[in-house]
Design a protein around this nucleic acid. Sequence first.
RNA 1: GCCCCCAUAGCUCAGUGGAUUAGAGCAAUGGCCUCCGGAGCCAUGUGCGUAGGUUCGAGUCCUACUGGGGGUACCA
Length: 542
Amino acid sequence: MKNYLFNLFKTTQISLPYLKEADIIFTVPVQKDHGDYATNVSMILAKKLKRKPLEIANEICTNLKYDDRIIEKIEIAGPGFINFYFTSSFNSLIIKEVIEKKEIFGKWQKYSGKKAMVEFISANPTGPLTVGHGRNAVVGDTVANLLEWIGYTVDREYYFNNAGRQMRVLGDSVKLRYLELLGETIQFPDDYYQGAYIKEIAAKLKKENGDRLVNEDAEGIFKQAAEKEIFADIMTTMKRIQINMKNFYNEHVLYEEGKIKSLLELFKVKNLSYEKENAVWLKLSELGNEQDKVIVKSSGEPTYRLPDIAYHITKYERGYDIMIDLFGSDHNATYPDVLAGLRALGYDESKVKVLIHQFVTIMEKGEVVKMSTRKANYITLDELIDEVGSDVVRYFFNMRSITSHLNFDLDLAKKQSDENPVFYLQYAHARIASVLRMTKDEGLVPSLDDLNLLATKEEQNVLKKLYEFPDVVLYAAENYETHRVCIYLEEIAALFHRFYTECRIIGSDKRLAQARIALCVAVQVVLRNGLSILGVNAPEKM
RNA sequence: GCCCCCAUAGCUCAGUGGAUUAGAGCAAUGGCCUCCGGAGCCAUGUGCGUAGGUUCGAGUCCUACUGGGGGUACCA
């Protein structure tokens, strides 16, 4: 539909050259009686041409040479909108396209040949993934899916650090619990890791080694065992929600390959850093940021900024056209420094897209559960999956704009899963599968021969919505907004149910029945495609 | 103090500068199966935090304010 309009306006440019001067946009009007698509081009041109919008709209309309088998009518309305009404027989042709393209309906070639990296989760192995990581994990994976749908080749990468203070505390925490199990009286500091998993790791060490480890360094076997166990856990959790990371990038590699050292040297040579009070500072205030920041502490240990910049440089070196970083809002102060460092070294920072998602609030028994990895009172992603399943987890994390806080009512998700919109979508899909099984037994098959019979309001509404799917995918992908897909799917499922309530298949004239079955198939394809973007199953039966 | 995000119906949230009429789900009330899946459909809504500004046109953009969340380390 949209394509036809774009082409129509392009040919009209010959007779009305001023059409080239405006960005022509077609939108689906909120009001159904305002047509299938509308454009505000005459209002935009009114200012440039200093003429009345209605007058311009009239002129455009008389010059549009359209095919009346495709467009039923064109109207001018309100202050100068041009509304387009398509013929019902043209609308029905979308079914043919959907059924022919099937699992690739909605895909684009627009960015084919381009490489993208999505870096997400990137949690250090200090504990199991929490619900907050869950949002990051699901959104990151879905953004990656969306980019694949518009043509990108996408790598998913997990960046982590198994050195540093946090990990030392982790090793100490495990050793203390180990000593405790051996009967020693210990003082367990408040700022150590309190979770039960620490005790489990300590217990495992005791079982395997008895008391032989009492004189071992906490940074040795204790830290290593903890990291191994925790990472195994994280991997299992990711697998449960269908996340396949391509790479795990260990910050340590940057040191091994000398990238930290050479970057530090580069900053010095370029006069972008200086020494003060035994520390090395990056001249961020000269690069447009608020203040200079330390990149090497007086202890000689770099702060996260140096490896983060070095890490991003490897992304450029690996040839990505676009690099997505997905962080929780608690990290929103870190990326401006990294971007400034990259900019100073001449890298095109517009290739890095930083997405910040807001917190997840867990509600349980009407109360907010405060969460901290250190403290014992947090809900793990694994527990959440146990309670509600992978499909609900993935759908819920995808269904809200990442700029908003996500309110996750655990009680609701636990006990009343049939209230969840994900079931509404899966039900629509399963219902169609059932219809197809049943009609097949009646000797009816989908047919594209008489699609023009699909003329009722309910049928037409579904058809027009089918046309929108590729646009929704493109918009969602280019704006990294996974929730758009959810909104669309809920809309088309609702339109389908309405159609199905009003329009009978068995008992109708055979040609009409078979056209309606074809409509069902098309809706099913789109539901399945949309759900696959989200990583949610589309069941044949429920 | 400064920086980022948010404020829309009882609750959870959509809303891509457009149309005298701002939508959905949940909750609530009342309808709809002699009929293909009732996990469905239909009906019922005193709502855009406050005050200015830009614009032909503002929930959407700008400024200030109020309220909430997150930051502002030689933690990440």
